[in-house]
Amino acid sequence: MNIETQHHDNDSAGLVLSGRFDAFETDAFRATIDPLLASESTAKVRVTMADVNFIDSSGLAELVRSMKRAREAGGDIELHNPSDPVRVILELTRLDLAFTITSAE
């Protein structure tokens, strides 16, 4: 999986993911998102998943961990433009009800 970091306005940052988000990728994801979540200036992290073709249970668990950490700090992570397979996987696991999911404006 490829992970690209983007900086948005004052209180938000973004990650753009592409490829397969599975157990082999969780360490790299955590190493990238945790510093953003730890930053006092970042309230929200947008994770763009338009080009993620598969996410397994380890990837889902990592997203949930990140979401909890962000919310504990008063922020959130937002799943942006998930691909069709990711959308369906979120729906089947009921995680679509837990995450903030946004589409392209």
Binding site: D56, S57, L60, P85, R87, V88, I89, L92
Partner: peptide, 17 residues
């Protein structure tokens, strides 16, 4: 039980399309 649901999601999204 942990692995099959994401697999079903990927298959369902692709083949339905």
């Amino acid at each position: 039980s942990e692995r099959v649901v994401p697999t079903i999601g990927a298959i369902a999204a692709h083949l339905s399309s």
